[in-house]
């Protein structure tokens, strides 16, 4: 009799403890962290024109956050147009790039805009748009490394090849 009363008190005390306002009692299990590594398969889907494209190769440069063509760029593009007219079989890829300042996705879009500007000029000058692939690498593949205006100017470009 005495024994069970003590037990009862103990139980009551335990209930009091666990319901007692401020104390946090918890149990948890940690998260599983299984990971599998993937090797990117480099099955390039683009068509390569490398061997024939030498005549039209050129690099067009741009101002910061700008995608309009400069007078010098127009001269370069004129000779590209000539080369393309003389070699109607070749196609070309326009890869737009940006310098590393600013955000990566905005720079990807900016590189694309620059490449599109060059494509528009070529199309306007009679080049069939089916000969042109337009894409951007944003700031991901700089032509020149370094945090200075000289590098930045080299990196704001469209590569024609």
């Amino acid at each position: 009799m005495q024994y069970s009363r003590i037990n009862f008190h103990l139980l009551f005390f335990l209930i009091f403890l666990t319901s007692c306002s401020s104390m946090n009692v918890s149990q948890e299990k940690v998260y599983s962290e299984d990971v599998r590594t993937v090797q990117a398969s480099l099955s390039s889907s683009e068509i390569s024109y490398d061997s024939e494209a030498i005549f039209a190769n050129a690099i067009i440069y741009f101002e910061f956050d700008k995608s309009n063509l400069t007078t010098k760029s127009l001269q370069t593009l004129k000779s590209t147009v000539n080369a393309l007219e003389e070699n109607p079989a070749i196609g070309l890829t326009l890869s737009g790039h940006a310098d590393e300042r600013g955000t990566r996705e905005y720079n990807l879009a900016l590189g694309q805009r620059r490449a599109e500007t060059v494509a528009e000029y070529l199309i306007l000058n009679g080049i069939n748009k089916n000969r042109i692939i337009v894409k951007s690498y944003g700031e991901e593949i700089p032509a020149m490394s370094g945090q200075n205006e000289k590098s930045y100017a080299k990196n704001r470009r469209v590569e024609i090849d």
């Binding site: 401020s22 104390m23 009692v25 149990q27 948890e28 299990k29 940690v30 998260y31 962290e33």
Partner: peptide
Amino acid sequence: GTQVRNSTVFGIPNRNRQLAHY
């Protein structure tokens, strides 16, 4: 002058860092 928390975390094998983070 009082206890405010009493917790138990259960781990998975060989993941002591995870346990410690919890």
